[in-house]
Amino acid sequence: MKFKAFLTENGVNLLEKRFLPALEKMGKICHLYLTKDHAIFLHNLLNGDGIQCIAQFRKEALFDDYRISSQNDDRVAFAIDISLLHRAVRSSVSICSEFGGGPTANRLQIKLVKKLPPNCTQALPFLTFETKGYKSAVIQDVPISKPLSRAQVLELQSALDMAQDMPQTLVQVPDLNQLQNFVDRLKHVGDVLNVSISKYGDLHIQISTTLITLGAEFQKLLVVGEQANGPAEDQNLSAQTRSARAISRGEAQSVLVTVRHFAKSLQCHLAKPDCAFYGIGSQGACLTVIFQFFIPGSRQNDKSISLHCRLPVLDPGEG
């Protein structure tokens, strides 16, 4: 199997300044899945433990002169340490800058190689960054796992397909900072968060302990998918009561998630999304957060980039 490409200036900026810092917060190790058309970072899709996080890029968003081949339908996947990858990209950028002519004027090549490390008898796989200057080249090797077998790649693709199932109702939260400030205060109150989402465009977040109940409600948010008009007679009721009535009418869903997982998912703000959508999966299977990116200088969705998280839900007995 072979993979070789050049990171574009836009690709370097996306990875170094935005997505790798966000992905580092999701977990130390992730899978990097390369296909003919996409580069995809996947957290927890195979072990199912913790937040599933998927960042997907069309190859043109990150690379030019992109070449890949394998016997797995030109698909290659391996596990990689995000912090080591981030460090390699960051230092390659600084090396390019020292040589002059901008971050990628000297071409930052990335490729899969097998090398024999010192004191080893067997060649090991690496993702290698090569920065060429005027008189020299600097090479950095990021260790990776053995590339996944055909069966493992199929399993990863199947998990990715399942993780693409979107909730029937999504509500848009344009101000992630407001939500993050609230959740930061919740960390000191308890461990379990009740999240309900209605077809009316309401997002209700509540934490309860034996001593205190604390909640926040975001109303009249933009709804994508199935939606409904809230009954007029509910308008003067408390947020808790309105949420309970909407759930009883089948016009809202509610799940329990850990405060830790919810707070961690908000770290995706480091990727600088323009807004986020929240939804609850079919039969309350998970809480889904979709981060949306606009084409710079417009309000149009940038379809070359996608990022979303799926938070595992707790059994009501655990709450």
Rank of each mutant, 00 (worst) to 15 (best):
E60Y: 14
S304V: 10
A159L: 07
C275S: 15
A123I: 00
I205S: 05
M162Q: 15
G100T: 05
F99W: 12
K115Q: 11
E130Q: 12
C53N: 07
M1G: 14
G101A: 11
D302F: 06
C309M: 04
D141E: 13
H38G: 08
Q140M: 08
V257P: 05
C120V: 11
G215T: 01
Q140P: 02
L127W: 09
T104R: 13
V12M: 14
R185P: 00
P118F: 02
V153L: 11
V192A: 00
D49Q: 14
R107L: 11
A271F: 14
R67G: 03
K187I: 14
R90H: 12
R185G: 11
S91F: 15
F57Q: 03
F78Y: 07
P21S: 07
F63Y: 01
R107S: 10
V76Y: 01
N106A: 10
I110Q: 07
M162I: 14
T169W: 02
P167V: 06
V192S: 02
A285D: 06
H308E: 06
I139K: 12
V257C: 09
A163H: 04
Q235I: 05
R310E: 02
L176R: 02
I305T: 10
P21F: 11
G101T: 10
I212Q: 09
Q178A: 05
L84V: 12
I295C: 07
Q267C: 15
R87L: 13
Q168R: 09
E318D: 15
A159W: 02
S91C: 13
L270W: 12
K2Y: 11
I295H: 08
G297K: 00
K4C: 04
L34Q: 02
Q172T: 04
R67H: 07
N44F: 00
F3Q: 07
K146V: 14
A239L: 01
G50H: 09
T35K: 06
S248R: 10
L314N: 04
G101E: 13
F218M: 10
S92T: 14
F293A: 12
F126P: 04
L62V: 11
G215I: 00
P21D: 08
D274W: 02
S158W: 06
K4D: 10
